[in-house]
Write a protein that binds this DNA or RNA. Structure first.
Length: 429
RNA sequence: GCGAAUAUGGUGAAGUGGUUAACACGGCGGAUUGUGGCUCCGUUAUGCUAGGGUUCGACUCCCUAUAUUCGCCCCA
């Protein structure tokens, strides 16, 4: 039977898996620096977690989720994003009883059934952070700075930080009402997408690219008129903090984000280089989601976080040539000349390995050619060559493939050459 | 859901309406070598995504299907 991978999924191996782990390692180390601890939540959850958490009106819930019935007819869903599950876990495990902030990060696969394209897959990996507990403008800025520094550490410089506020939940609700009313009067002149958005999520109309330049859009109600003084002061403070931290940003009034749970500060990091074919790609996005915990019957809790797509970052690293893979696979390849010394070579390899020297050996052939091919393939800096003459005389040939030198050494010197403490290797007659 | 492009061996690929489907890399076998990576010889797609059609004849033209890729929408 010929089977192939499901559309929009990836096999990682070779260089790609190294790139993937490289990003993961950077993510983990920066999380540590900011004091975020890992949380691992299930790959699947009850469907309500996302339906309620992410929001009934969102694209994710309406057309992108992998939802299925288990054997007891319960509706489950493969997680399409990380925040809802973390919020559910926060409430369920009563993490709120600890005073102060819970700072958590996750790194894992998410699933969305949509059309794959550059940097977008159906099974993809997100790294995200969530800070649950007392909110503050300082925290908002710190979270944004986290994202900023993360991309910097990966070497990704040309990034536009777009930021906006959509106010408190009540402000947002009033604003949505106003938008609905306003756009209802003009809906005939607008694009089809906007017509559906009007019912589902009027905020998103602002995000429309088709009608962006029309007068209707220009004259639409502004969020600023629906923000309370506290909301505005809060946002100003976030911006001041970013100034101080040296994060350059652009205020995008029309940045609203597609998930229902957001309020107050929202942001997106967008790759910004007109000359690049990945210009405009969203690399990281997030915002504040105060009160999401109420969806899971938890206490009203402030929270903020972001998510970033690892596959997209990999795409950027490739595009910019930022990931170099010059890792040597092993330190030594042991080559034997003639079948009669194969066992001696294996024994020598075993000795090296047991003393933390990584080492490779050809298990099949005793011909020189394939053995040298192997050492090329694994990029070994050293080659040890033994034949029956060497064993007879208690020596071995040591080849340095970088300096391209070759010399005969006594077997007693092996430990010294590879910095091995303890018992010395000796040929057994 | 909409739109576009592509589909030849292990890989990168060239190709023409008409006998043996170019070339390169890789693989395999061998020659020469106690030391390869240079050289030399041989070998490596009864088949060009699948099915149908046009034709005396199609890998090359048409249709359908499938897959991949890219874009829109939305997002990470």
């Amino acid at each position: 039977m010929k089977v192939s991978k499901i559309k929009g999924t990836l096999d990682y191996f070779g260089r790609d898996v190294k790139k993937y782990r490289y990003i993961e390692n950077v993510a983990r180390s920066i999380s540590k620096q900011f004091g975020y601890l890992e949380i691992v939540t299930p790959i699947f959850e009850a469907t309500e977690v996302f339906a309620r958490g992410v929001g009934e009106g969102t694209d994710i819930v309406n057309k992108e989720m992998y939802t299925f019935l288990d054997r007891s007819e319960k509706s489950l869903t493969l997680r399409p994003e990380g925040t809802a599950g973390v919020s559910r876990a926060y409430v369920e495990n009563k993490m709120y009883v600890d005073p102060g902030l819970k700072k958590l990060f996750y790194f894992g696969q998410m699933f969305r059934c949509e059309r794959p394209q550059a940097g977008r897959y159906r099974a993809f990996t997100q790294f995200g952070i969530e800070a649950l507990g007392p909110g503050s403008a300082y925290l908002d800025a710190d979270v944004i700075y986290f994202g900023y520094l993360f991309l910097q550490k990966l070497g990704i410089k040309n990034v536009k930080v777009a930021i906006n506020t959509i106010g408190s939940k009540s402000g947002r609700a009033k604003y949505e009402e106003a938008l609905k009313e306003y756009f209802s009067e003009h809906i005939d002149e607008m694009c089809n997408d906007c017509k559906t958005r009007l019912e589902k999520n009027p905020l998103r109309i602002l995000d429309c690219k088709v009608d962006a330049k029309s007068d209707i859009m220009k004259n639409a109600p502004k969020i600023i008129d629906y923000l309370s003084e506290e909301d505005i002061a809060y946002f100003d403070k976030v911006l001041k903090c970013l100034d101080k931290l040296g994060v350059e940003y652009v205020i995008e009034q029309k940045l609203v984000r597609g998930l229902d749970y957001y309020n107050h500060t929202v942001f997106e990091f967008i790759y910004d280089d007109k000359n690049s074919n990945i210009d405009g790609l969203t690399l990281l996005g997030g915002g504040r989601y105060n009160g999401l915990s109420r969806q899971f019957d938890g206490p009203e809790t402030d929270a903020i976080g972001f998510g970033t797509g690892v596959e997209r970052l990999m795409l950027v690293l490739d595009e910019l040539g930022l990931f170099k893979d010059d890792e040597k696979l092993v330190d030594v390849v042991v080559i034997n000349i003639g079948e009669e010394t194969k066992l001696e070579a294996l024994s020598l390899a075993a000795f090296l390995r047991s003393n933390n020297v990584s080492c490779e050996i050809d298990y099949v052939s005793s011909n020189l050619k394939p053995q040298f091919k192997l050492s090329e393939r694994v990029n070994a800096p050293y080659i040890i060559i033994i034949g029956s003459e060497e064993v007879e005389n208690g020596v071995f040939k040591l080849k340095n493939t970088i300096l391209k030198t070759e010399e005969m050494r006594k077997i007693e010197e092996l430990n010294e050459i590879f910095n091995i403490e303890g018992e010395k290797y000796a040929y057994k007659k």
